[in-house]
Simulated scan of single mutants.
Amino acid sequence: MTDLEAFLASASVDQAVFALRPEYRALLIGVSGLPRSASTGGGPIDAAADEVLLRAETVARELLAENPVEQLPHVAAWRDAYRQFGAKPQRTRNSLEALLRRAESGLPRVNPLTDIYNAISVLHQVPIGGEDLSAYVGPPRLGRATGSEPFDTMANGAVAVERPEPGEVIWCDDGGVTCRRWNWRQGRRTQLAPATTNALFILDALSPMTDEALTAAGDELIDRLRGLEPELSVAVRVLGAGNVRLPS
């Protein structure tokens, strides 16, 4: 077993989350050996990221020309899940909805690594988070907050530590919250940085997204990352109520 496989094998989803949404699946993709230019940009890497972003913007505009964003099937499912744990989706939008709402004026350009996974999120209609795997303290876990967990973030331009609401669905490790409200806002400590060479990507799926569609999203993300570094090391795991592993 590789280090990446061991890390993903230690990840878990609490049964309290499956009690909320029994059909939930998390596709975890761990990668190592990314070039530093993936997080800083430059030359062909920028061009590769921009190409997939432009395609995602086109697809999003076509989708939104036919339906309001909140009526897109996977967006609607996530809005319902947010309501189930007490969040207000019109105020704290899941990451997929937030990206789609920016598509008309243009998706954000952050760095090639972030831009690529944001584009895949829009193209496949699935929330995706990307984090610096090397910054983790212990394994990733998805559960419901007690309200005491620290969340390292920025507020009004300054470093701040916040606490989730009790019962809120959170990703965390032994160091605290890594992402609040399931897939709303990622923490500062584990965010992708210029020095990132090892990363964790989390793809969150609810019904009506099928296992096949989730796998396709993960496959395209891996293909795009291997376009940045052909020798990239990759490990894949799916966490579901039955802990069923999907083919990579």
Results as ranks from 00 to 15, higher is better:
Arg226Trp: 15
Ser233His: 13
Glu220Met: 03
Glu220Trp: 00
Glu220Pro: 01
Glu229Pro: 01
Ser233Gly: 07
Glu229Leu: 02
Leu214Pro: 04
Pro208Gly: 14
Asp219Cys: 04
Gly218Ala: 03
Arg224Asn: 08
Asp211Cys: 10
Asp219His: 03
Leu228Glu: 08
Ile222Cys: 08
Glu220Gly: 01
Leu225Lys: 04
Ile222Gly: 04
Ile222Phe: 07
Pro230His: 14
Gly227Arg: 11
Met209Ile: 12
Ala216Val: 03
Leu221Gly: 12
Glu231Lys: 09
Glu220Val: 00
Glu212His: 06
Ser233Ile: 03
Leu214Thr: 12
Leu214Ser: 08
Pro208Gln: 14
Asp211His: 05
Thr215Asn: 06
Gly218Thr: 03
Met209Val: 14
Leu225Glu: 10
Glu231Thr: 05
Ala216His: 01
Gly227Ile: 07
Val234Ile: 13
Asp223Cys: 05
Leu221Glu: 13
Ser233Thr: 07
Leu221Ala: 10
Leu232Gln: 05
Leu232Val: 02
Pro230Met: 11
Pro208Asp: 15
Asp219Leu: 07
Val236Met: 02
Asp223Ser: 09
Ala235Met: 02
Arg226His: 14
Ser233Phe: 06
Ser207Glu: 15
Ile222Thr: 12
Leu225Phe: 13
Met209Asp: 15
Ile222Ser: 05
Leu214Phe: 00
Pro208Thr: 12
Ala235Phe: 07
Arg226Pro: 07
Glu231Ile: 01
Ser207Gly: 15
Pro230Asp: 10
Arg224Ile: 01
Asp223Val: 07
Ser207Asp: 15
Ala217Val: 01
Glu212Trp: 00
Glu231Met: 10
Leu228Met: 15
Leu228Gln: 10
Ala213Glu: 14
Ala216Cys: 05
Asp211Trp: 00
Ala217Ile: 01
Arg226Asp: 09
Thr215Leu: 04
Gly218Ile: 01
Thr215Trp: 00
Glu229Thr: 03
Ala217Gly: 03
Ala213Leu: 04
Pro208Lys: 10
Asp211Asn: 14
Pro230Glu: 11
Leu232Asp: 06
Glu212Cys: 01
Gly227Trp: 15
Thr215Cys: 05
Val234Lys: 07
Ala217Gln: 05
Ser207Leu: 14
Met209Asn: 14
Ala235Val: 01
Arg224Asp: 06
Asp219Gln: 11
Leu232Gly: 04
Gly227Tyr: 15
Leu214Glu: 13
Thr210Glu: 13
Thr215Ala: 08
Leu228Asp: 07
Leu214Met: 09
Gly218Trp: 00
Asp223Lys: 10
Glu229Phe: 09
Val234Tyr: 12
Gly227Asn: 13
Ala216Trp: 00
Leu225Trp: 12
Glu229His: 08
Glu229Lys: 06
Gly218Leu: 02
Pro208Trp: 14
Thr210Ser: 15
Leu228Cys: 11
Glu220Tyr: 00
Asp211Lys: 05
Leu232Lys: 04
Pro208Glu: 15
Pro208Arg: 09
Val236Leu: 02
